[in-house]
Structure formats: structure tokens, C-alpha cells
Design a protein around this nucleic acid. Structure first.
Lengths: 123, 123
DNA sequence: TCGGAGCCTGACATCAGTGTGAAGGTCAAG
DNA sequence: CTTGACCTTCACACTGATGTCAGGCTCCGA
């Protein structure tokens, strides 16, 4: 599919789809005329990228973890390719993500508690 | 305490402490000589702000939720001041935070699963 | 064959969060 | 009284994510 359709189907401006490619997050083929050609799976990829960006990750972090994120069953780098260094990096990313989750959860709880205290009976 | 000490105790550059004030996240008093004067609680406030910024929230969101975030027992806007509109806004913020948590959790799980699959026995 | 829609690249603009430096005021210790 | 550490404001610059526009190519339908 071409960039316009991908944009319509994901709601992401073409400008950003090109930017994500420049950032090495998307890798469309090129047709003979130079047009980008995206596989069907790009729709899910773009939604994944958007979710992570909206969650505050940088394109750099996303680039680092994307290869390991596609749904189960899709091809990931196999065990042989995963050096201890890579594993350590991944582990570090997991921990950073976890601390974000912790911070957000803590504050969500506080907000919820406040709201519950202040309007105990929202009819 | 003055800005330098607050900076040392939080590890946050003075530049950013001034920026956070400009963004209405901190509200130090001023001494007669014009120096900023922070209460002890500012240390916790700054750490709170940093955590939320690192978790991807904008100063705008932080400004919106900060008044309701300080630990239990500290003064919050009381129930009488909370209009239904305010409550709805807060509820919206909670939901946005929750969707971030969901996205991050989902992907943390995927990364962990991948890592576990690839190095099942990390001696 | 022409017009318009869609694609290309490239450039400049914006916003938030930071870094850095200049020019000058305050204050305590020597 | 001077020096040095600390404070003030102001300003310019950078990065990452994004908006927007210009100039030009491709292709399809009237």
C-alpha cells in the first residue's frame, strides 16, 4: 500500500510516516516510480509506534526495542543472534519502562484516591 | 533553602528549577535580596516533577495534576472547590495515564517474554 | 493531451525541554 | 575593601517531534 492509504488507515500524517522511516522505524519498499510501498503489517507497526511515542518513549528507544516487539509468532532475531550485551541492553530498557510504569501507577493511584475522596458518590 | 542547595539535593540543574517555576510547577518565595527561597518540601516536589517528566508527561499535564498529587495528609483543594468540570478533567488525565500504563505494560511483557525465550537459563 | 490527485525531496518553522554564557547584584570570609 | 561563591535576569542555541509549504514527478481519468 502507498503512503496515503497508510496515513488514512492509521490517522498518522504522511509527514510522520516519512519521519519514522528516516528514524529507521519503518522500512517500506520502493516501487519503480519511487513511491513507498508498505506491507499490510505496517498498519499495526505504525499503531505500535504511535502508542509508544504517546507513552513518552523516544524514537531512539523505540528503534532499540521494535525488533523484539512484534506479536508472538512473527520473526524475531533468533537466540543465536542475541549476544549477552544485547540481552543486557534489553534488560536495561525493560527496567526503564518498568520505572515509568511504577511512577505513572503511583500517581494514577493518588489521583484516583483524591477523586474518590472528593466525590464519594458520583450519581 | 536557596536554589543551589535544592539543585545539589535533587541533582537537577538550577536552570531547570527556574524553568519549572516559569512553567508554574514550583512557587518559591523571594528573600529581600531577590533570591529564591524554597521550603523543605520542594525537594520532594522536584523529584516528583522529574519522575513525571521522565515518564513522558508534559509540564502542562504535570501542572494540571500536581495540586492533587502531594502525599496524603497534605493540603489539597477541598471537595467544595472541585467542580464537576474539574473532576471530569481529572478523570480524563487518569485515563490518559492509564492508557500509557497499559501500552508500556504490554510492551514490557513482550520484551520480557522474548528475553526469557531467548536465554532461558542465564547463569 | 490536459488536469488533478497523489507522490517525491528539501527546507524552514514551531514547541517543549535543556544547555550555556553574559552582565551584573549580594554576601561572607580573608 | 576585595575576592570568590552564589544569586539575579536575559538571551541565544540545540534536540526531538511535528507542521507546513514549495517545486517537481507520476499516473489516471475526462
Amino acid at each position: 500500500m502507498r503512503i496515503g492509504e497508510l496515513s488514512r488507515r492509521t490517522g498518522v500524517p504522511t509527514r510522520l510516516l516519512r519521519y519514522y522511516e528516516e528514524q529507521d522505524l519503518l522500512h517500506p519498499e520502493r516501487a519503480d516510480n519511487g513511491y513507498r510501498s508498505y506491507p499490510e503489517s505496517a498498519v499495526a507497526d505504525v499503531q505500535q509506534i504511535r502508542g509508544l511515542l504517546d507513552s513518552g518513549l523516544t524514537t531512539e528507544m523505540i528503534r532499540a526495542i521494535m525488533p523484539y516487539l512484534s506479536g508472538p509468532g512473527v520473526l524475531h532475531p533468533p537466540a543465536e543472534c542475541v549476544t549477552p550485551q544485547t540481552a543486557a541492553l534489553l534488560q536495561g530498557h525493560i527496567e526503564r519502562i518498568q520505572s515509568r510504569i511504577d511512577c505513572l501507577s503511583r500517581n494514577r493511584d493518588r489521583l484516583s484516591a483524591y477523586l474518590a475522596a472528593v466525590r464519594p458518590d458520583p450519581r
